[in-house]
Computed example of a mutant assay.
Amino acid sequence: MAAERPDRDGGRERSRAGSGGGATALVRGSRARLDQPLDRRRRLLPDYDPEAFGQLSERVARFLGTGRFIVWMTLIVTVWVVWNVTAPSGWRFDPYPFIFLTLVLSLQASYAAPLILLAQNRQDDRDRVTQEQERKQNERSIADTEYLTREIAALRMGLGEVTTRDWLRSELQDLVRDLADHHLVLPAETGHGRDETDR
């Protein structure tokens, strides 16, 4: 006799009750099912896109390394100091020791340093990938050069065995000299270039 019990998906799960039957349904419980996605875990920290954050850090680090940042920083500090020295005492928000200015500058430096390091790490990663690609390209270029060198050497060896015009000319000149040394002269042609025996 089959006993039915509802599962958490709203369907029905059947199992056989009996000693000799065995189970026909999936065993559900503490084990995770592989056919369903896992529930998202709750995190205390908010989710963020590391690539977007890295690009933002590179932009900030690039701006911090420009002359424009130095000019703006100098203007802000100058206006801050001049305002807090020359303004009426009721309008001064940071009197002479300029403690608030020191706090702002140290806060800016404490954020700038990690952002610059993050941008440098990303640049190092890009440089490492570029160097790896250049190394592979150099290896391919060396392999191609060695292959072409072997092919050129094989062609030179093959051309060394081919008869050339200069070699054939020198061999014919040697043969003519040998014939002249042995006094073997070809019969002279008469008249119109034919021998008398041809008539």
Rank of each mutant, 00 (worst) to 15 (best):
S89D: 10
R68C: 01
Q131P: 04
L101S: 02
L168E: 13
L44E: 03
K136N: 13
G29H: 05
R43W: 07
W91L: 13
R156Q: 14
R122G: 07
F69Q: 06
A112L: 02
D166P: 06
A25W: 11
G90P: 00
G191C: 10
E171F: 06
A109Y: 09
G67P: 03
L56A: 09
G191Y: 11
G90E: 10
M1V: 15
T78F: 13
W91Q: 04
E132N: 07
E196V: 11
V60R: 01
Q108C: 05
R62M: 04
A52F: 02
M73L: 11
W80H: 01
G65A: 05
R135G: 08
E134S: 03
R140I: 10
A25G: 12
V85A: 06
Q133D: 10
L56Q: 03
T190N: 08
W72D: 04
H192T: 07
S30L: 09
E58S: 08
T130L: 10
H192L: 12
A23M: 06
F53C: 13
R33W: 04
L118Q: 07
V27H: 14
D9P: 00
V85N: 02
G54F: 03
R199N: 14
G90F: 09
R126L: 07
T130N: 06
D49T: 08
L56N: 02
F53Q: 07
V104P: 00
G11D: 15
D178R: 15
R135H: 12
L103Q: 05
R40F: 00
R43Y: 06
T102E: 04
M157W: 10
L45Y: 13
R156I: 06
F93I: 05
A32W: 06
L56F: 08
N84G: 08
D9R: 00
E161V: 10
L155E: 13
E51R: 05
G21M: 09
R43A: 09
A154P: 05
V162R: 15
W91G: 01
T163P: 15
Y96I: 04
L179D: 06
S30H: 06
P37N: 01
H183T: 00
R40A: 00
V162P: 10
A61N: 00
D47G: 05
F63V: 00
R33N: 11
P114E: 10
R128P: 02
A32V: 06
W91V: 05
G158W: 14
A113M: 10
L117E: 13
T102D: 02
P187E: 12
L118R: 03
N138S: 12
Q123G: 12
R33S: 10
V104C: 05
R12G: 04
Y147F: 14
R150F: 15
F69S: 06
G160Q: 14
T163A: 15
T149I: 11
G90A: 10
P187Y: 05
V176Q: 14
D195R: 10
F63S: 02
W72P: 00
L148T: 07
S30Q: 11
Q36Y: 03
L45Q: 13
M157Q: 14
A87G: 04
Q120I: 08
L44F: 11
G90Q: 13
E171V: 11
Y147P: 02
Q137L: 12
R135P: 08
T86A: 15
Q137D: 15
Q131K: 11
L117Q: 15
L115P: 01
Q131F: 10
L175W: 14
L45I: 11
T197E: 13
T24H: 09
S30I: 04
R33Y: 05
A112P: 05
D35N: 06
F53G: 01
